[in-house]
């Protein structure tokens, strides 16, 4: 028996909106730790890892580890029917072939339940080692989204370079080139407006903008994004999910032949 009650149901809507364009079907894994997901995009270039810790739920009952195979666009369709302020409860029996999403309005005057068919998904689970990063950039998530969107009108790839000058996002295309430099800046009114660059070594890596733009669908989840870079390793683009977890996108770099 699984029963997870999330007061901030709107968070789950935002999580699904940030996943559904990247991944079609995925297994949600429920354990005592929390509600998690790991999935790759269909071309195995990007990977997403979601964790919502059990403590973040108002009620978290998971009698035994369960894997719920869901079509993410169908799940997003169902969650779209919840109000942004609704309390969302996810329920499933141990041997269930469906999952129930229950939506309660904040003042309890409307209660809805949606039952979605589960699916068997052969998922590949990858072990992600802890890595030391050469550079970690924290910046406003909306700024990062704007940069990725702007650069993708000019080129297909972005070179992200971190030096002591700051972090540089560069692209080139048929019409020309573009470079955007963001400097370390903590003298801001609000902490979420800061750009914090921690650099052990200079690093420069090239990535497909199509995927970066897909990751920025998670922007409504968090004011800040963390971009962790190391030579010849996938970049990690991380958004916090309130105080309860994170969504991490990994993207393999393009390497010079």
């Amino acid at each position: 028996m699984l029963e997870l009650r999330l007061v901030q149901g709107g968070l789950l809507k935002k999580v699904l909106d940030s996943l559904k364009d990247l991944v079609n079907d995925a297994n949600f894994d429920c354990s005592a730790t929390g509600f998690s997901l790991q999935a790759m995009d269909s071309s195995h270039v990007a990977l997403v890892a979601l964790l919502l810790r059990s403590e973040g739920f108002e009620h978290y009952r998971c009698d035994r580890n369960l894997s719920l195979g869901m079509n993410l666009s169908n799940m997003a369709k169902m969650l779209k029917c919840a109000g942004n302020d609704d309390i969302v409860t996810i329920k499933a029996d141990d041997a269930a072939d469906s999952v129930t999403f229950m939506f309660e309005s904040p003042n309890q005057d409307k209660i809805a339940d949606f039952d979605m068919k589960l699916m068997d998904i052969d998922s590949e689970h990858l072990g992600i080692p802890e890595a030391e990063f050469q550079a970690i950039v924290r910046m406003p998530s909306a700024e990062f989204a704007r940069i990725c969107k702007d650069l993708s009108t000019i080129g297909d790839t972005v070179v992200i370079s971190v030096t002591k000058e700051g972090v540089k996002f560069s692209t080139r295309g048929d019409i020309g080139t573009a470079n955007i430099v963001c400097r370390h800046n903590t003298s801001v009114d609000k902490p979420e407006e800061a750009t914090i660059i921690e650099m052990e070594e200079t690093v420069s890596l090239t990535f497909a903008l199509r995927y970066m733009n897909s990751f920025t669908k998670a922007t409504p989840l968090a004011n800040q994004v963390t971009i962790s870079l190391s030579s010849d390793l996938p970049v990690v683009v991380e958004y916090k999910v309130a105080e309860m977890g994170h969504i991490r996108f990994y993207l393999a770099p393009k390497i010079e032949e």
Partner: peptide, 14 residues
């Protein structure tokens, strides 16, 4: 010319 690496070239199956 750049070659797109795959995630599976970095992380092993667990």
């Amino acid at each position: 010319k750049r070659h797109q690496k795959l995630i599976t070239e970095f992380f092993n199956h667990s």
